[in-house]
């Protein structure tokens, strides 16, 4: 089954996934119009900053077993078997924050949503863009990511590819290949690391 796979080493921190996510979870599904909606749509993916201020797209892992689902006493959180996605039933959600307390990754927020009863604050999290998937589209964050930091694929295939990359990077001899990546991005990161080392001196 396909899922969103995160490749942190490729995240350039542009935050376009956040904008695309909020738009995908808006009523109008269009960026300028979405900004005028009440309630204002919010992203489910959150880009954080690492030690060197490199980006990291933090999103729901749809864990199994999912701590949030187990912690949800009203039974609002459930798993969609078709897409293996942990979802929230906004009608049942009581905004108790138990799911956020249980979540090890901090990817659950509380806000109003156009799909929730008006005025009700509910638990909002990544839904793997199930609606878009039904329309044959990939999740919005993946679609917008231009560096391949977010891909939509079978995690097993991604892991296999990564294994191949790691294996090639440690092999020696004539067949040795560079670690796939970008020399230009590596240069930027090397300079950012050097700056950080200076700053904490």
């Amino acid at each position: 089954m396909k899922n969103v796979v995160v490749h942190p080493e490729r995240c350039v921190g542009c935050m376009q996934c956040m904008i695309a996510c909020a738009t995908a979870h808006s009523h109008t599904k269009a960026t300028p119009a979405a900004l005028l909606e009440v309630p204002r749509p919010s992203p489910r993916v959150h880009v954080g900053a690492g030690i060197y201020n490199e980006g990291f797209p933090n999103r729901c892992r749809h864990c199994d077993p999912a701590p949030c689902l187990l912690a949800c006493l009203p039974g609002a959180i459930y798993r969609d078997p078709e897409t293996d996605t942990v979802l929230v039933n906004y009608d049942r959600c009581i905004n108790c924050a138990s799911c956020a307390m249980a979540c090890p990754y901090g990817v659950i927020r509380y806000t109003e949503d156009y799909k929730a009863p008006p005025g009700k604050v509910v638990s909002v999290k990544c839904d793997n863009c199930v609606e878009r998937q039904h329309e044959g589209k990939v999740p919005a964050c993946v679609e917008t990511c231009k560096t391949g930091a977010l891909t939509f694929e079978d995690p097993a295939i991604a892991a296999k590819r990564k294994t191949g990359e790691v294996a090639r990077s440690v092999s020696v001899g004539e067949e040795a290949r560079e670690v796939p990546g970008s020399p230009t991005f590596s240069l930027l990161n090397a300079l950012k690391r050097a700056q950080k080392i200076v700053n904490i001196r």
Partner: peptide, 22 residues
């Protein structure tokens, strides 16, 4: 933080309305 890597690297272009591009 994090600041946009495209922009940090000079790889984003907002010059025309066919774009923006990166």
């Amino acid at each position: 933080q994090p600041q946009c890597g495209f922009c940090e690297m000079g790889l984003s272009c907002r010059i025309c309305a066919m774009g923006p591009c990166r």
